[in-house]
Computed example of a mutant assay.
Amino acid sequence: MAAADDRLAFEAHKKEMSLALGKDEDAFRQSLETLVTLDKYDYAYLWSFMGVPIIQMPADVMATQEVIWNSKPDVIIETGVARGGSVIFMAAMLQLIGKGKVIGVDIDIRAHNRDSIEKHPMSSRITLIEGPSTAAETLAKVKAEIPEGASVMVVLDSDHSRDHVLDELRTYGPLVTEGQYMVVADTVLGWADSSQTPTKRSKIWRAGDEPYAALKAYMEESTRFETDEALNGKLVLSSSPRGYLRCIKAA
Rank of each mutant, 00 (worst) to 15 (best):
M1V: 10
D5M: 06
R7P: 00
L8Q: 10
A12V: 06
K14H: 11
K14Q: 13
E16F: 12
A20K: 15
E33P: 01
E33K: 14
D39L: 05
Y43I: 12
Y43C: 10
A44Y: 14
W47A: 10
G51C: 10
G51F: 02
V52Q: 02
V52K: 02
I55D: 09
M57K: 11
P58T: 09
P58R: 09
D60C: 03
V61I: 14
Q65L: 13
E66D: 09
I68R: 06
W69E: 04
K72E: 14
D74S: 08
G80E: 06
G80M: 08
V81S: 00
G85T: 04
V87T: 08
V87A: 06
I88P: 10
A91L: 11
A92G: 09
M93D: 07
Q95K: 15
I97N: 08
I97H: 07
K99M: 07
D106L: 04
D108M: 11
I109W: 05
R114Q: 14
I117T: 05
I117W: 04
K119R: 15
S124P: 01
R125N: 13
T127V: 15
E130H: 01
E130W: 00
G131A: 01
G131S: 01
P132V: 12
P132K: 12
E137Q: 13
T138Q: 11
G149S: 00
V154Y: 07
V154E: 03
V155F: 14
D159G: 02
H160F: 09
S161H: 13
S161W: 10
H164I: 08
H164W: 08
V165N: 01
D167M: 08
E168W: 11
R170I: 08
Y172I: 00
Y172G: 03
L175I: 01
L175S: 03
V176T: 12
V176N: 06
T177C: 01
T177S: 08
D186W: 02
L189Q: 08
A192T: 04
S194W: 06
P198K: 00
T199D: 10
K200V: 02
I204V: 15
W205S: 10
W205H: 15
A214N: 03
L215M: 14
K216H: 01
A217R: 07
T223R: 12
L231K: 07
P241G: 09
R242P: 00
Y244S: 07
L245D: 07
R246C: 04
I248H: 11
A251R: 14
